[in-house]
């Protein structure tokens, strides 16, 4: 589920704020200390043995829709076969070799009774998409990916937000004139593909309820959707904020990293830095920013490698209030 709010907590769900760098996100801090890795990990594991062919791992990934399989025998953990390993095997023509020859063995692992804050720091520090989880006896007990964390955190946060929001009241208001004034903020988490798109869906529904012209609604929705997916695929997480006033829709997608090296290149048709498994989910074809630019009346992007990226899309949606 996505979290829709202007409440203080939502603003803190920006990357970096997980650790209380610039603020005191007390709700989150409390949560990530309270929850243990074992509360969040996927415990039921699909594994392969060392001498299983890479093709068997590929087949399992396809069937189970997962992006990495641990190599394990009798609870002993040897390594991990990822989608990238499979793609390399297909490219290099060694897909029938045993997993033990090509699996990733340089691995960082987590322990099941570490607090969730540890896992978050690991994801921050290393570029891996998942970590195997071992118990005290060094037996493999699960695997944890960012999506697991996002899902659990969002569930916990939403219940908290619902409580806060019912206290602070509605956040759609009308100003003195008859112009509609809407302001929404949607926190977007990295790799949370299940929730990605929900903000754009809601934006479209709100505009439809307000009876704006369908053509304009579609442009706003497309821009919001692409920016939302971008935050999900490419950033470490960020916030999509949207406001409408006086027939002007303004979407701002802001993240705290990793930043874009060559902005001009990124805005070109067909260029993409997405990995193969993101492509396999139907994203990362390199058309996102081009598409946002195409539907926007004003488009602005500022980015710096190593820090964050901000994209602004302004779309006129009828000069007269509906």
């Amino acid at each position: 589920m996505s979290v829709v709010s202007q409440s203080p907590v939502a603003r803190h769900v920006k990357t970096g704020a997980y650790f209380g760098v610039d603020n005191e996100p007390l709700v989150l801090l409390e949560l990530i200390q309270r929850l243990k890795v074992r509360d969040v990990m996927t415990p039921k594991l699909v594994t392969v043995s060392r001498d299983a062919p890479m093709r068997a791992a590929q087949e399992l990934m396809r069937k189970k829709k997962i992006s990495g399989i641990p190599v394990e025998e009798n609870g002993r953990f040897f390594g991990l076969v990822s989608i990238d390993d499979i793609i390399r095997a297909l490219g290099g023509g060694y897909i029938d070799d045993p997993c033990s020859r090509h699996m990733t063995t340089k691995l960082v692992v987590l322990e099941d009774d570490m607090p969730l804050s540890f896992a978050l720091r690991y994801f921050d520090r290393y570029s891996y998409g998942r970590f195997p989880v071992l118990n005290r006896d060094q037996r493999l007990v699960g695997i944890i990916c960012q999506r697991d964390i996002n899902r659990v955190l969002l569930v916990e946060l939403t219940s908290e937000l619902n409580r806060l929001e019912s206290a602070s009241g509605q956040n759609v208001m009308r100003d003195g004139s008859s112009n509609i004034y809407v302001l929404r903020e949607f926190p977007i988490c990295k790799y949370d593909f299940e929730s990605a798109g929900k903000a754009a869906n809601q934006i479209k529904q709100i505009l439809q309820e307000k009876k704006f012209p369908p053509k304009d609604i579609r442009r706003v929705a497309v821009a919001a959707y692409e920016l939302e997916i971008n935050l999900c695929v490419h950033s470490d997480g960020g916030v999509l904020s949207w406001q409408v006033a006086n027939g002007r829709s303004e979407i701002i997608a802001r993240d705290a990293g990793p930043g874009i090296e060559d902005v001009e290149w990124a805005c070109r048709d067909g260029t993409s830095t997405a990995s193969e498994w993101i492509r396999s989910l139907g994203f990362g074809a390199g058309m996102g920013l081009v598409n946002v630019k195409r539907v926007s009346d004003e488009f602005e992007i500022t980015s710096k490698k190593g820090s964050g990226t901000t994209v602004k899309s302004v779309i006129q949606i009828g000069n007269t209030p509906p």
């Binding site: 299940e194 754009a200 869906n201 479209k204 929705a221 959707y225 139907g282 994203f283």
Partner: peptide, 11 residues
């Protein structure tokens, strides 16, 4: 995936 339906709604 759910994304298909979300995309369909957008367009």
């Amino acid at each position: 995936s759910d994304q298909v339906l979300r995309t369909a709604q957008i367009v």
